[in-house]
Amino acid sequence: MAKSIDVSDLDIYYGDFKAVEGVNMTIRAKSVTAFIGPSGCGKSTFLRSLNRMHEVIPGARVEGKVVVEGQDLYADHVDPVEVRRQIGMVFQRPNPFPTMSIYENVLAGNRLNARKMKKSEADDIVERSLKGANLWTEVKDRLGRPGMGLSGGQQQRLCIARAIAVQPQVLLMDEPCSALDPISTSAIEDLIHELKSEYTIVIVTHNMQQAARVSDETGFFNLKAAGQPGHLVEFNSTQKMFANPDNDSTEAYISGRFG
């Protein structure tokens, strides 16, 4: 189910502004890949281009190839809606649907497939997904309550449960812990470790320790100068990145001597 992603010569634009330039990388299946870099370097933008969420913003477009299992996501006949069903996403701020219960939130993605589900089938999906997101024991007695009533960290795990309920091939996470306290953060990091065995995970983070803790491979994005497009400086195994990076600016950034 988990799949690798090959990105070649990817340029990303907002209207006429080139935000990210010339990215080449291979994201391995069933591993955690982290992107780090200063604000505005295009790492979130790049992440959003992996499931075609980038183009939701008016004027935004992409040139180049993103290939998942031999299929270019930006080929002419590819429906972005279909892409997003295969590649799930978790956002910076927890965003459960405010009008829905915990139960309905988990099923939101499955319901979109418009297939009629039996009650028992739906129950199974909810239990499996919430267990997968380490939330089951905390909410199993109040599945009918609104998702908004949970704490921030629980809401974020609910969003992860919602994303994995449709069994995507890849799970993208855009700074999933930046709005959470250390305890919730650690819960999510543990979860990422567990999910790795089933999903390909790509995570953007501002927290270098987090990248070091959770990821197998790390990509460092940077800007040449303000107003210039961001680019991928180095992509290596996390171990190498944090011990002995190839690039000087990577080392400068990681050791805190940056900017």
């Binding site: 649907f97 919602r162 994303a163």
Partner: peptide, 23 residues
């Protein structure tokens, strides 16, 4: 935030509207 949540789940525009804009 909510609109993107729906879109990222693979909602079409109309499904996104039903999931987020109307409620």
């Amino acid at each position: 935030l909510h609109q993107e949540a729906a879109l990222a789940l693979g909602a079409t525009r109309w499904e996104m509207i039903r999931l987020t804009v109307f409620p």
